[in-house]
Write a protein that binds this DNA or RNA. Sequence first.
DNA 1: AATGAATGAGGGTTCATTCAT
DNA 2: CATGAATGAACCCTCATTCAT
Lengths: 217, 217, 217, 217
Amino acid sequence: MSRRTGDDSTTSAVEERAARRRDDRRAQIIRAAKQVFAEQGYTNASISQIIANAGIARGTFYLYFDSKRTVFDSILGEVVEGLTARISVIALDDTTLSPRGQVARNLQRVLAFLLEDRALSQLLLNPGLTPDAESAQQLDAFYERITLMLTASLDHGIRMGLVRSCDTALVAAALLGAIRGVTRQLLRNDETPHIEAVVDELLAFGWRGVVVEEAWD
Amino acid sequence: MSRRTGDDSTTSAVEERAARRRDDRRAQIIRAAKQVFAEQGYTNASISQIIANAGIARGTFYLYFDSKRTVFDSILGEVVEGLTARISVIALDDTTLSPRGQVARNLQRVLAFLLEDRALSQLLLNPGLTPDAESAQQLDAFYERITLMLTASLDHGIRMGLVRSCDTALVAAALLGAIRGVTRQLLRNDETPHIEAVVDELLAFGWRGVVVEEAWD
Amino acid sequence: MSRRTGDDSTTSAVEERAARRRDDRRAQIIRAAKQVFAEQGYTNASISQIIANAGIARGTFYLYFDSKRTVFDSILGEVVEGLTARISVIALDDTTLSPRGQVARNLQRVLAFLLEDRALSQLLLNPGLTPDAESAQQLDAFYERITLMLTASLDHGIRMGLVRSCDTALVAAALLGAIRGVTRQLLRNDETPHIEAVVDELLAFGWRGVVVEEAWD
Amino acid sequence: MSRRTGDDSTTSAVEERAARRRDDRRAQIIRAAKQVFAEQGYTNASISQIIANAGIARGTFYLYFDSKRTVFDSILGEVVEGLTARISVIALDDTTLSPRGQVARNLQRVLAFLLEDRALSQLLLNPGLTPDAESAQQLDAFYERITLMLTASLDHGIRMGLVRSCDTALVAAALLGAIRGVTRQLLRNDETPHIEAVVDELLAFGWRGVVVEEAWD
DNA sequence: AATGAATGAGGGTTCATTCAT
DNA sequence: CATGAATGAACCCTCATTCAT
């Protein structure tokens, strides 16, 4: 069905522009939807609000997304993916950056990502804004993954004599909770904070809580 | 909406029985609604589900509550009130129980309360399950109150030389987050945990993170 | 959920009246829907038209039927069932009524049934008014059944020496078509016809065809 | 909408080619639409299906037809016209072909036309596949015309002593119905039948009915 | 006090039609 | 000529709320 009459074999300029416009529209809708979902939650949000927010007609929405649910899943996928991409596993044998430095870098990237798109963060922090139990589980699964990573790190740290002996699963939950709590706090205030300072403070809090003192710094 | 508090002496036995029946019904509906709200969130929950769960007729529901919203607010009020009642301000001059002991007692009471009614806890932990932004703010306000209490305590601790110097607002947010994180974890597992052990672990985590080491037991 | 307090074990008068009212409503909706479907066809018909025709509110419709489709199926089932019940197999050994008489009786009952509810008949005569191919096949299956019955009768008649040798399947289709054609004609005219006369004429046509024997080849 | 009929001499070759291309496109769309309408009925059919079937873009459709309705009317007109052209009035004074032969020839032409384009025939046989009551009446009017022709022929035949005395309107309806019934049957089966044999059988049925004369009353 | 049939505003979605490119 | 993105009216259905019994 695509035409191309006397053109060279690569994508023509016209097609390129069309593709860009299409992506723009999609992004525009996602932006609008994200905001509405973050404010109202999935169920309460209405297509009417989304399209009003995006400044498009009812039918246009369905040109870019199959359903209300589809946009939401797109958004949720985006945030989970975005975060996952910003977290790298701590390497204890890294000679260029200390474990604590690596954690700091992870935190910095994550916080920067979250503060950049507050609506997205609201969705991430509130599993209840989600369409249904199934969707909430997608988020839960993400958090579970993080918690397991943290638990494993703590376990490893204990074996290395760097971390004091403790119920690592519980402490991991507490650590993740602390990060979420601080993030929530940051989002509440409108001014963008000095991320490095926040990370330092957060690390100081976490470190002094879990470490065996003699073994560190 | 509940009658009789001052209870003038003319109340007959008949009236008393009627009032008790009324309160029972109310409680029955609240119980049913709480469960449905916790599972589905406010918007997704339907009156149909609530009355089916309560085993009453549609009209009966509206005999006891003005609207769907009203039940929810009742429930939310109940949980906030219940928690507030279980938290007492730390008294540094208390000679019978150390500050740490007082915090432990608070935590124990709060966790016991939450684990006792899991549906309630879900609502508390997920502001997104709430009817709207306004209602979510009621919860936020509660958390804000707790955070301010914690901040004040930390500030006081710093002045007394018990707590290391830090961004107390941020650390307070982290502490509250840690508690929420652990609670969430506890609710996920079905088995009821040994609360004292959890509190010990949580305290150890928080303490070692915020204290000036030399100054404490 | 059903109550009954101090009542006898059988259905109470109240319940009976409620059941009757319920059936009345259902019938009222079916009546309205039948008319709309007959005039517009399934797809073109709208719930708005049906409820306007029935004089009820939107929600009320869904109190009695799960969906637009459900009403339609109810109606289609009713007509197929009604017709099937009015057709009895011809018994050649019946001593009280000749085969031709039996056919006449069948035709009379069928025509009377159809003329009694013209909307129903429209649906029966026009498979195209149906929701989809699947639903149309339900009708087709009915006609197929009738055609097979006719074919079998003709085959039997040939073996008995009563019917001239012919392509019975084709003649059966012609016979059924003739009946449908006449019915269509009757429905077009508003006045209710003298059914017996119609049946006589139809039978004469089927039996003997149209010619005056002596005058032809 | 189609240009050039009187065809003034100034038409250039270029214009001619353009006109032909235009007609081709039109035919292509009609072909696609016919199929979709026959399968789904007017209302169920969507422009999307038609253009997908025709392999053209959305806008192109509206370059050739004003609306969905317009294509349908074109198609309906085509079939009615095609049939009308294939039916010639019976001439009793024709010395080269007997009346029965003339009827046979009519039937052959009609059946051949219908079997040639099954989609068209579906539309013809199912007034319910039509946009609305108004459109259905166009079809009805066609059938009415045929019925009147048949009635007139029968009346004439009676006056000539060739046809037995009967309710000619009713018998005409039966005859037309028989033809439609047989056609429907032929369309159901996929294999193309031997038309002459069918016509013979159909004529025999109409002429003589189904009985073996000696065996009855 | 209790019931449940009835209501109608509002939800998500589809689709014939238009128009800038 | 041809395209396909954009439009918005209209569709089917849900559900909080009311009210006669």
